[in-house]
Write a protein that binds this DNA or RNA. Structure first.
Length: 570
RNA sequence: CGGAGCGUGGCGCAGCUUGGUAGCGCACUUGUCUGGGGGACAAGGGGUCGUAGGUUCAAAUCCUAUCGUUCCGACCA
C-alpha cells in the first residue's frame, strides 16, 4: 500500500478528551474517530489491526471446533422476557420499539439468541457437544463510556457458546477453550494472565478472566511467583499467617494522642509503623440497628467483597454514622479500639497474630500502646479474612508469594450451567429417549478492546509499538527526497514490488514530505520494520534498516534485503 | 440520577469579568527556499461563536430555557 492512496490521518496534538495513552494514540495515529459518546468509527488503518485480531481469534476458534454463526444485533424482547433479563438488565440494555410498537433491544450479549437457536436446531444428544461462535457488534448503554474503545457503548466481541449433555463434557470444552484462549493471546504477542474470576466456591460456576497486563489496567491482579495461581486482587484469599503470635514484651499504657485520627497521623505521632497499629471500623450488622466492629492491621485495606460474604454484616456494606459510633464506642471515629467494646468484633486473620500493638482507647484523643491479646483483652472469637491481599502475601495455593500487577480484562470463559437452557427449555433427546436440558458454557473476547489493550501495554513516547501479528503493516519503506531522484524512485518502486510479491504487508511512503515527517508518522503508527532508501545508499548498494524498537539503524546490502526482511518476519 | 466544567473555522484554544471591526496555534491551498527525525518565509481559503428565546441602539460576551459533551460521584459487573 502507498501512503498516497492510504491517508494516514495522523495528528500531532493530543486530543483533550483522551485520558489514557491508548485512547490518545489511537486518535493520534488515525485508528479511530469519535462519532458520539462511546461510539467510534474505525479508520482504514485501525480496521486493519482490528481485522488481524479477528483473524487470529477466528482461526483458533475454528481449530478448537467452533462453528461460526452470525446472529442479529437487534433482538426481540420476548426471548429476554423468557429468561427474566428484560426486567433484570437495567438501563444498560438499550431498548426500542419497532413501527408495530413491538419491544426490541440492541444485543449486549447473545445467550438468549443462541439458546433459542439451539433449542430449535439441536434435537439429539448425538449432536452434542457443539460450540457456536460469532464475531459481532454488541451494544451496552454504558452510564459513562470512557477511555475510547476500552469502554465504549458499541464494541466488537467474539462470543462463543457451547452446549452439552453432561458436566464432564462441559469441563472438557472449558479446558479446550482455556487452551484456545491461551493460544490466541500468545499469537497476539501480548503479556497476559488467566485469572480465577470466582474464587472457587466449591461446586459453583468456574470462571476465568484473561487479562492483558498493563500498568494502567483497571483491575489489579495478584499472581503467584511460583505457580500459575492468579486472581483478581479483590478475590484473592489472604491466608492465616504461618508465624504464631509473638510473646508480649510491653506493658499496656494509655497515651494522649491529641488530634491524631488517621492511622498515618497516629503512626507519625508515635513514630511507629502502621503494621503495629490496629484500626477499628464500625459497620452495620445484618440485624436492624446492630453494629459490628472490624479489626484490621493499620497498613491493610478492608475488602468489601469479602466482608459482605460474612453473614452478620449488612449487605451492601454500610459504615456506621458518627452518631452511631459515638453511642456504641463513646468517642469519635479516630479513637475507636477493641478494648471494652460491647458490640460484636470480627478480627482479620493478620490482626490475630499481632502483639504489642497500638489501638484507639474509645476516648477522644487517647490510644493504648503495648496492647496484647489474651492478656489485655480476649482474642475475638470471630476471626476472618477481611482484607485485600498485598504484594508479598503468601499465595493462596501455598506455592510462592503474591505479586501484584495491573491488567485489562479482554476475555472471559465461564461455565454457565443450565441458567438459560432451563429458562428457555432448551433440551435434547438423550440416550434413554427422554428430554434433557442442555448444559452451557460461554466464552467471550473483547475484540476492539484487545486493540486498545495492546497499545496500552506496548508504546513509547513516539507512539504505538505493535507486536508483529497485530501491526497494520509489517514493513514501511521511506525514500529520502524521491521527487528529486529518478533512479531512487525506480529502486524504491522495485523494492516495494519485490516485497509485495513476497507476500509482505508493506507501506510505501511515497508522499512528498520531509524525512522527519515520515519517520514520525511511521513511529506513531507503530510499523515494526522500517527501510530507508536514499541516493547515498544507492551508491553503496545498501538499504538502511531500523526496527521500531531499536535506536540505531543498520545498512543492509540491497541484494540481501528481501531475505533479511523475511528472516525478521519469521 | 446528583454535582461541576466546557460548547467560538477541520482539530486544540484565547476573547466573555467591564456588550461596540472574529483572534491565535495546528491542519489545508499556492509559491519560493529547504531537504535524514513532525522545516522557513510569503500569500490565501474557511467561522449564522451549540440551539431557541429574552434584555439592549448594539450580544460570542448579560439573562432564561434547551441540546450536546467532558469530569467527579452514585448505579451496574
Amino acid at each position: 500500500m502507498r501512503t498516497s492512496l492510504f491517508p494516514l490521518n495522523t495528528v500531532k496534538e493530543t486530543p483533550s478528551e483522551a485520558e489514557i495513552i491508548s485512547h490518545q494514540l489511537m486518535i493520534r495515529a488515525g485508528l479511530i474517530r469519535k462519532l458520539a459518546s462511546g461510539l467510534y468509527t474505525w479508520l482504514p488503518l485501525g480496521l486493519r489491526v482490528l481485522r488481524k485480531v479477528e483473524r487470529i481469534v477466528r482461526s483458533e476458534m475454528e481449530k478448537a471446533g467452533g462453528l461460526e454463526v452470525l446472529m442479529p444485533g437487534l433482538q426481540p424482547a420476548e426471548l429476554w422476557q423468557e429468561t427474566g433479563r428484560w426486567e433484570q438488565y437495567g438501563a444498560e440494555l438499550a431498548r426500542l420499539k419497532d413501527r408495530h410498537d413491538r419491544d426490541f433491544c440492541l444485543g449486549p450479549t447473545h445467550e438468549e439468541i443462541i439458546t433459542d437457536l439451539a433449542r430449535h436446531e439441536i434435537k439429539s444428544y448425538k449432536q452434542l457437544p457443539i460450540t457456536y461462535f460469532q464475531i459481532q457488534t454488541k451494544f451496552r448503554d454504558e452510564i459513562r463510556p470512557r477511555f475510547g474503545v476500552m469502554r465504549s457503548r458499541e464494541f466488537i466481541m467474539k462470543d462463543a457458546y457451547s452446549f452439552h449433555l453432561t458436566e464432564e463434557s462441559l469441563h472438557n470444552t472449558y479446558e479446550i477453550m482455556y487452551a484456545t484462549y491461551t493460544a490466541i493471546f500468545t499469537h497476539f504477542g501480548l503479556k497476559f494472565r488467566a485469572v480465577i474470576a470466582d474464587s472457587g466456591s466449591i461446586g459453583g460456576a468456574v470462571s476465568h478472566e484473561f487479562h492483558v497486563l498493563a500498568d494502567s489496567g483497571e483491575d489489579a491482579i495478584a499472581f503467584s511467583t511460583q505457580s500459575s495461581y492468579a486472581a483478581n486482587v479483590e478475590k484473592a484469599e489472604a491466608l492465616m499467617p504461618k508465624q504464631s503470635r509473638p510473646a508480649a514484651t510491653q506493658t499496656m499504657t494509655l497515651i494522649d494522642t491529641p488530634n491524631q485520627h488517621s492511622i498515618d497521623e497516629v503512626c507519625e505521632f508515635l513514630s511507629i509503623s502502621a503494621t503495629q497499629c490496629v484500626k477499628t471500623l464500625i459497620v452495620k450488622g445484618a440485624e436492624e440497628g446492630e453494629l459490628v466492629a472490624l479489626l484490621l492491621r493499620g497498613d491493610h485495606e478492608l475488602n468489601e467483597i469479602k466482608v459482605e460474604k460474612i453473614a452478620s454484616i449488612a449487605v451492601p456494606l454500610q459504615f456506621a454514622s458518627d452518631d452511631e459510633i459515638q453511642r456504641a464506642c463513646g468517642c469519635k471515629a479516630g479513637s475507636i479500639g477493641a478494648l471494652g467494646l460491647t458490640i460484636s468484633i470480627i478480627a482479620d486473620r493478620s490482626v490475630s497474630v499481632m502483639a504489642d500493638f497500638v489501638c484507639g482507647a474509645n476516648q477522644d484523643g487517647k490510644h493504648y500502646q503495648g496492647v496484647n491479646w489474651e492478656r489485655d483483652l480476649p482474642l475475638p472469637t470471630h476471626i476472618a479474612d477481611l482484607r485485600t491481599v498485598v504484594e508479598g502475601d503468601e499465595s493462596p495455593d501455598g506455592e510462592g508469594t503474591l505479586t501484584i500487577a495491573r491488567g485489562i480484562e479482554v476475555g472471559h470463559i465461564f461455565q454457565l450451567g443450565t441458567k438459560y437452557s432451563e429458562a428457555m427449555k432448551a433440551g435434547v433427546i438423550n440416550e434413554g429417549g427422554k428430554n434433557q436440558i442442555m448444559i452451557m458454557g460461554c466464552y467471550g473476547i473483547g475484540i476492539s478492546r484487545v486493540v486498545a489493550a495492546a497499545i496500552e501495554q506496548n508504546h513509547d513516547s513516539k507512539g504505538i509499538i505493535w507486536s508483529p501479528n497485530l501491526a497494520p503493516f509489517q514493513v514501511a519503506i521511506c525514500p529520502m527526497n524521491m521527487h528529486k531522484s529518478e533512479r531512487l524512485r525506480e529502486a524504491t518502486e522495485n523494492l516495494y514490488q519485490e516485497l509485495l510479491n513476497a507476500g509482505i504487508e508493506v507501506l510505501f511512503d511515497d508522499r512528498k514530505v520531509r524525512a522527519g515527517f515520515m519517520f514520525s508518522d511511521m513511529d506513531l503508527i507503530g510499523i515494526p520494520h522500517l527501510l530507508v532508501m536514499g541516493d547515498k545508499g544507492l551508491d553503496s548498494g545498501t538499504v538502511e534498516y531500523k526496527a521500531r524498537t531499536a535506536n540505531e539503524s543498520e545498512d543492509i546490502a540491497m541484494t540481501d534485503i528481501l531475505e533479511f526482511i523475511k528472516a525478521k518476519l519469521r
